[in-house]
């Protein structure tokens, strides 16, 4: 393979979905658990993102962060600062963040009206 040849190869057109002003809700149980995670320090934010991969093609990415390099929209929901990356806002609009209290498979769960299917563990969706 000639790298000069490769450099001149035409770029594949990549359709970038339009940025959506995402709306999301947090259930009472999830708020209770987030309160425990954040404590009094509300300078931190909950980053709700999507990565490619997982059994169904997309994986949720939930992190508590000070800031991020990603281009995000910031929401204030019941006193929590929530960051949604613009690149994945179309996949996250309308989600509900829930917390499931179970010994196995418990933890934060995302109910997503945009998902046509999800894998057994609930971390991946399509």
């Amino acid at each position: 393979m000639d790298c000069n040849t490769c450099d001149s190869a035409p770029a594949v057109q990549i359709h970038v979905p339009a940025v959506v002003s995402a709306m999301l809700t947090i259930t009472d149980k999830a708020k209770e658990m987030l309160n425990g995670a954040f404590g009094e320090d509300r300078s931190q934010a909950l980053l709700v993102g999507v990565l490619s991969g997982g059994c169904s093609g997309y994986m949720y990415d939930l992190q508590v962060v000070e800031s991020t390099e990603q281009d995000c929209q910031e929401l204030m929901i019941d006193g929590f600062r929530v960051l949604i990356p613009n690149a994945t806002s179309h996949l996250l609009d309308g989600i509900e963040i829930d917390y499931v209290d179970r010994l196995m498979g418990g933890g934060f769960k995302i109910n997503n009206p945009n998902a046509s299917s999800s894998c057994g563990c609930g971390e991946s969706f399509a």
Partner: peptide, 23 residues
């Protein structure tokens, strides 16, 4: 394959070009 890959790039640092014609 491209239909499978492209929607999943999301915000990642990934660029794809097609060198099929020249190789």
């Amino acid at each position: 394959l491209l239909s499978h890959l492209i929607p999943r790039i999301l915000g990642q640092d990934v660029q794809i070009s097609d060198a099929s014609e020249s190789n």
